[in-house]
């Protein structure tokens, strides 16, 4: 979904809803609200919420449609409907949630789920860095802001400033909470819809494979190197022979990561000093 993403998916992985283009800058300028005289608390809240809502409309469209697909596929894979709202509330990571459908509907263990989620979301460990400053003074809200930092929320908050007169921290919190509410509504609606269908639609779970194909195409466009794909192919070949279908994904993944690590020198030949700081 992105992506996660989906969610919650990296912009370069293609699932992020369209973020404002350069030409739309005026739109965001236009919606800036002049700082008014000290207003009452509830008026402040309304101001913040309306600014946050307008900023988050692109995410609204993306999260509702991708959430709908998630809920539909989840129920179509034979999983109980309540898993969709539960995951939207507590996991809130699109690509990982989509991956989780296949693993949970199959026979994957908790360890496999944890490891794959870790790899799927490893990007968060690095790109959250640029939010360190923005969230430094968030106080009590910080834990939620960190929890809800999906690719799309990250994309919005690093692109758009809070309008004048609107408290920065409240704006961040409102955008984050609104985005999660869109995701929650999309996932829940999709699950309800899937549950209401008179019969199980055969073959709908192929949407998962299609999603991963899309993400793979995006990866191939972004990562101009053959090593990760060779590592994956070799890992898959070995696991195909050596492992049961149940253990296929885990074993192939471990082999692929090992091979990838061995090829690290090839992929990152003598990086210039200071290149790492430019994350």
């Amino acid at each position: 979904m992105r992506g996660t993403a989906i969610i919650p998916i990296r912009r370069s992985q293609g699932l992020a809803p369209p973020l404002p283009e350069r030409g739309e800058e005026r739109y965001y300028e236009a919606m800036q609200i002049p700082s008014s005289s000290p207003a009452s608390g509830s008026a402040d809240l309304r101001l913040v919420l309306s600014a946050a809502f307008r900023a988050s409309v692109p995410v609204l469209l993306g999260y509702i449609s991708i959430g709908l697909a998630y809920g539909l596929v989840l129920v179509g894979s034979g999983l109980p409907w309540w898993l969709a709202p539960l995951s939207a509330l507590f996991v809130y990571a699109g690509a990982a949630q989509f991956m989780g459908i296949g693993l949970l509907a199959g026979s994957a263990g908790v360890l496999e789920l944890a490891l794959l989620t870790l790899l799927m979301n490893a990007r968060h460990m690095v790109y959250g860095l640029s939010m360190l400053g923005r969230y430094a003074n968030a106080g009590m809200r910080k834990p939620y802001l960190v929890f809800a930092l999906t690719d799309e929320t990250y994309g919005l908050l690093t692109t758009i400033e809070a309008p004048q007169g609107v408290d920065q921290r409240s704006f961040y919190t409102s955008v984050s909470a609104l985005n999660q509410s869109y995701w929650f509504i999309g996932c829940s609606l999709g699950a309800a819809l899937g549950n209401a269908l008179p019969m199980r639609v055969e073959g709908l779970d192929f949407a998962l494979t299609a999603l991963f194909t899309v993400l793979l195409v995006e990866q191939i466009k972004t990562i101009r190197a053959w090593e990760p794909y060779l590592a994956a192919a070799l890992g898959a070949a070995i696991a195909y022979i050596a492992a049961s279908p149940r253990d296929f994904l885990l074993l192939s993944l471990l082999i692929a990561l090992g091979l990838l690590t061995l090829m690290r020198k090839r992929l990152e030949p003598a990086r210039p000093q200071g290149a790492e700081a430019a994350i």
């Binding site: 790899l119 990760p228 794909y229 898959a236 296929f248 994904l249 993944l253 990561l257």
Partner: peptide, 13 residues
């Protein structure tokens, strides 16, 4: 680089 390998394996699986 890991996501590229993970996606490949998810499709292959």
């Amino acid at each position: 680089y890991a996501p590229a390998a993970v996606m490949s394996l998810l499709v292959l699986s």
